[in-house]
Design a protein around this nucleic acid. Sequence first.
RNA 1: UAGUUACUACAU
Length: 233
Amino acid sequence: LFIGNSLIDMYAKCGYLAGAHAVFQGLSVRDVVSWTSLIVGYSDCGQFKEAVDCYDQMPCVGYSPNTVTLMCTLKACGNIEAPDKGLQVHREIVLKGFENDNHIANTLMDMYFKCGLIASAEVVFDKLPVQDLISLNILLAGHLEKCSGKEVLACFQHMQHNGFAADLASSVCAVKACTKSGDISTGKEVHAYILKSGFDQDLPVANSLIDMYGKFGLLVEAEDVFDSLPIRS
RNA sequence: UAGUUACUACAU
C-alpha cells in the first residue's frame, strides 16, 4: 500500500495524472493517504474541481477525510473560489474537532480570503490557536486583494514589531503593496530590508521588485535588480 | 507513504 501510495504521489508530482489515477484504480486496498495523494495531485496540477470531486466521493465508499485531506480540499476550494464547498469542509472540520490544528486553521483562513469572504477569514484569524508567520503572511496576502497598500504595509510593519522576521513570502507581499499604492519611498525601504535579509537573489522577490520599479518608471533601478540576478525566469 | 502562505508581462 505504501508503495502504491508513493507511486500515486510520484506520478502526480510529475504532472502525470493519468498514471496516478491508474495506480489508484489498480490498488486492491486503499486508505486515506491514497485518496489524499490523488486529491493533492489534482490540486497541484490545477484540476481543483476534480480534487473536490474526489473529496466528495470518499465518504460514499467508506473513507473518512483526515486533517491532511481536509486541508488539501480547502486549498482546492480557495483556488476555484468555491465558498459553499469550503463552508461544507469547515463544518466537517468543526464536527471532527480539528479547528485547533494550526495548519487547518491557516488554510481555512486562506480559503476564505481567496473566496473574498474577508470577514469570515478575519474571524478565523482572531480565533487562531497560534498566530505564526504563515498566518500573518496569509493575512498580508489576503489584505492585498481588498485593502489599500498602506494597510498591508501597516500589517507588515506591525508583524516586525511583534517579533516576527518577515520571510520571502512576506517580502513579496510588502513589495506588491507598495506597487499597488504607488509608494516609492516605502518601496525602497522594503528593498533595503530585502537586501539586509539576503532575499534579493530569490526569484519571486526579485521579480516583484522589478515589477514595482517598472511600474514606477524607475527603469534604472529595475535593471539593477535584473542584472544582479544569477538566474532569471 | 500524503499536507498550509508569496512572484512578472500580455490578456481577463
